[in-house]
Computed example of a mutant assay.
Amino acid sequence: MTPNKKILITGATSGIGLALASRLHALGHGVIITGRRKALLDAATKAHPGMIGLQNDISDPAAIAALAVTLAKDHPDLSMVLHNAGIMKPERLGADATGLSISEETITTNLLGPIRLTHALMPLLLAQPKAAIVTVSSGLAFVPLAATPTYSATKAAIHSWTQALRWQLRDTGISVHELAPPAVQTDLMPGHATSPHAMPLGDFIDEVMAMLTADPVPEEILVERVGFLRRAEAEDRHAQTFQSLNANYRSLD
């Protein structure tokens, strides 16, 4: 990554987003973070003088369009977007089903949000000598968690969409990368922050930053721990891995 980039990170008021924003800000990059809750944005920017916070709801098409207008006007040098905003909620299908609204909200936030924002920012990114798009999928894009079927599906879709986008933009100045985390100790789901089965956030960020600051940045930003899921199909153990993953997650049974 070249120095002094202007970087937009969505959903960066906590967890992975805020941790990456803090590290990139410390390296001297101009960092803009978004989130729905103004109090959290204000706390983050107060703790990191010079960081910019813009309130935005990635599930709202009008808010995305307005954000793109603001960025083009106030930050015409924006050269990187990191699509971090996302939600992860358990669902039940069958006789004791949870509401369809969870599925629809997950698709709107995790899949339509990055797609809409990328479309809105494309003219701005194409205007830069070099730019980058970083999507955030998940190890669950490759081996789904049955307790979160729509979340897993949206991350598989993001993986596929990222590959296609990378190919379409291959002759432009925009590089396209995919960050696929394993389970990380954040508040994405209840219990994750203290789960012994999740990777400590600091360790995860250390590995990711080593790849983000490499030259070149890899197309897939994969910490060692996620390889078990990423390579499951290639190593002909997908069914075994699926069984093992889901046997260890029984909270909805």
Rank of each mutant, 00 (worst) to 15 (best):
R231A: 06
N56H: 14
P3V: 12
P218I: 07
T106A: 05
S103P: 02
L229I: 01
T213C: 14
M51N: 08
L8M: 07
Y151M: 04
L222E: 10
M80Q: 04
L124K: 04
T148K: 06
H238D: 07
L71N: 01
R231F: 11
H48V: 09
A147T: 11
A72D: 01
S59K: 08
G113F: 02
E235H: 01
H177D: 07
G28M: 05
A132R: 15
K73Q: 05
H119L: 12
T162K: 00
A232G: 01
V69A: 13
T106L: 08
M189E: 10
G191C: 00
P123Q: 08
R92Q: 13
T70I: 04
N246H: 03
Q240E: 15
T241A: 12
R230S: 05
L222Q: 04
L111F: 07
L27E: 13
L41E: 06
V143F: 02
A39V: 14
S79R: 08
L20C: 11
L188F: 12
G99W: 03
Q163D: 11
Q128F: 11
S103V: 01
T172G: 15
A63M: 09
K5N: 15
R231W: 06
R225D: 13
A72N: 01
K130I: 14
T148W: 02
T118W: 09
T45E: 05
L67P: 05
R36S: 08
Q168D: 13
G28S: 09
P90K: 12
E224T: 12
W167G: 06
D236P: 02
L71E: 00
T162R: 00
G94E: 00
I9N: 01
S195N: 14
I205D: 00
P144L: 08
A183W: 06
V217G: 15
P144N: 11
K6F: 01
T34C: 05
L93G: 05
V208A: 01
R23C: 12
H75K: 00
T194E: 15
S138T: 09
A146C: 08
L165V: 06
G28H: 06
T109H: 05
H192N: 12
